[in-house]
Simulated assay, not measured.
Amino acid sequence: MFPWLEIGGWLGSALIVLSLTQARVLRFRWLNLTGSLVATAYNAILGIWPFVAMNAAISLINTYWLWRLNRERHDAAVYEVVEVAPDDAYLLHVLRTHAADIATFAPRFAPVPEPGEERSAFLVQRGDETVGVVEVRDAGDGGGVVELDWVTKRFRDFTPGEFVHRRSGIFAAKGFDRVVVPQAGGSDRAYLRGVGFRPEGSAWVRDVVAGAEG
Rank of each mutant, 00 (worst) to 15 (best):
S19N: 09
R156G: 08
A39V: 14
A39G: 12
A89N: 04
Y90D: 11
S59L: 06
P111L: 15
L66I: 05
V133N: 08
G196N: 07
W4F: 02
A53G: 08
V195T: 07
V205D: 13
D141M: 15
F122V: 08
R119T: 03
V208M: 11
L95V: 15
A100Q: 11
V94N: 14
E114W: 12
A212F: 09
P86Y: 04
A23F: 07
T40D: 00
L123N: 13
P160Y: 02
A139Y: 02
F176T: 02
D149N: 07
I58A: 14
L148H: 04
R71L: 00
A56D: 06
Q183Y: 14
D141H: 07
V82S: 13
A53E: 05
L66M: 03
L31K: 13
L18D: 12
T97D: 13
G9K: 09
E135I: 02
F109L: 13
M1A: 12
L26N: 10
W67E: 02
R193P: 03
G127S: 07
R206W: 12
R189W: 01
F109C: 06
F176H: 01
A41Y: 09
G140T: 03
P86M: 07
A212D: 09
R206N: 11
N32Y: 07
A57D: 02
G8N: 01
T104H: 04
A85V: 13
R167K: 03
V133Q: 14
F176V: 00
V25W: 05
W49P: 10
F28I: 08
V136Q: 02
T104K: 05
D128A: 13
V25K: 05
G132C: 14
F155Q: 12
L11H: 05
R193A: 04
K153R: 08
G143S: 02
G161Y: 03
V133A: 03
W67D: 00
R119K: 10
P86S: 15
H93Q: 13
V208Y: 08
G127L: 03
P107L: 04
Y64H: 06
R189C: 09
G214M: 04
D101Y: 03
A212Y: 13
A100H: 15
L20F: 14
V146T: 01
S59C: 10
R137F: 03
G132K: 15
V205P: 00
F163D: 02
E162A: 08
G143V: 00
S120L: 13
Q125C: 09
P182S: 10
G142F: 12
G116K: 06
A14K: 10
A23S: 06
A103H: 10
P182Y: 04
A139H: 00
F171Y: 03
R198G: 12
T63R: 09
F171S: 07
A139T: 02
L69E: 11
A41S: 01
